[in-house]
Design a protein around this nucleic acid. Structure first.
Lengths: 191, 191
DNA sequence: CCTACCGATCGGTAGG
DNA sequence: CCTACCGATCGGTAGG
């Protein structure tokens, strides 16, 4: 059995895992060290502070959701097609990066003011992508509800953001079925 | 200015406020004491432990949501009417008891195993109320979607549970308008 | 990455 | 509700 030294990336990954499971304040640097097989104090050769670690994980989450939204907005077709892409992209981010996604969604509020700004901006951009698609849907007729796009996007994002709270990859609902159900529900609500 | 001694109820209320704002692990007994104008150690004449305090707040939240669901299920009329009552009741609990609701929704996971059981049960009962109404809606035709009631109730609850995260009583959307939008969205999704 | 620490803060208690 | 504590744990540092 080969035991290698941990990299900075290992540390950040383990931090995401613990922050997602126990929360930032519920995780100590000694807990994190134990997770990696070293002492809490040894972590400081990889990172400057505990906040630094949170900032890294949350920034990673922001980047993933942002990339997903950019890709979805670039999809050709009607607005309903792009809404489907936004939904599928969100589920992909959550399922493939569960710890990062959970930390981004639940622990960003614990960021100190210096780190919070860009994250709030990213979140706003993400929500704006949904609003854009809903507005387009009203124009092209593919999502013709008379509901306010701002409110509707909050509702749809509420459903998507909650996926991490209940969805289990080992349950009976597979990932494509989840996306289909989400998409059907959203499109039905907007017609 | 008359300064009166704090009651146990005062302590629990302040705890709900801080747990909602900063989380359980982000709140120290000294923080809570400061909020009430006394020392952290003085709180122990009102409660046995910090966990005890969390358990009280969360139990209060569970009772409020439970009462709301019981009342909504007893409403006469078709299932769509009862779904509207469930939604209005949920919004009422959240708006009128914001700190208790937030603590119930976000901090229950921090409860120690001994206190967690009844809360998980209450949450299941609450979700079951939604499933019941959605099933009834399929029978009486007032909510005739072909979507699985289990999934649909998770989606609707996701939207409702997120209200606490974005809704502000001092914004342009008043409480009745919020309920109307929620109800319209949910009913549209289920038709 | 460890040894050996630091001062600060934590939840909680004894006794009034 | 305060005084006066307790042992444990916290984030973090110096030096190797």
């Amino acid at each position: 059995m080969v035991t290698t030294r941990n990299t900075r990336a290992d540390v950040i990954e383990a931090a995401g895992r613990l922050f997602a499971e126990r929360g930032y304040h519920g995780t100590s640097m000694r807990d994190l060290g134990k997770e990696l097989g070293l002492l809490g104090s040894s972590l400081y050769s990889h990172v400057d502070s505990k906040q630094d670690l949170l900032a890294e994980v949350v920034a990673e989450g922001a980047a993933l959701f942002d990339a997903s939204a950019r890709a979805a907005l670039a999809v050709e077709g009607d607005a309903a097609t792009r809404l489907h892409a936004l939904i599928a992209g969100h589920v992909a981010v959550v399922v493939d990066n569960i710890d990062v996604a959970r930390t981004f969604l639940n622990e960003a509020r614990v960021l100190d003011p210096g780190h919070r700004g860009p994250i709030v901006a990213a979140r706003d951009r993400y929500e704006e992508a949904f609003r854009t698609v809903l507005r387009e849907g009203r124009s092209d007729g593919s999502l013709s509800a008379d509901i306010d796009p701002k409110i509707a996007s909050i509702f749809i994002l509420s459903i998507l953001n909650a996926v991490e709270r209940w969805y289990r990859t080992d349950g009976d609902l597979d990932r494509d079925q989840l996306v289909a159900q989400l998409s059907r529900f959203a499109v039905a609500a907007l017609n």
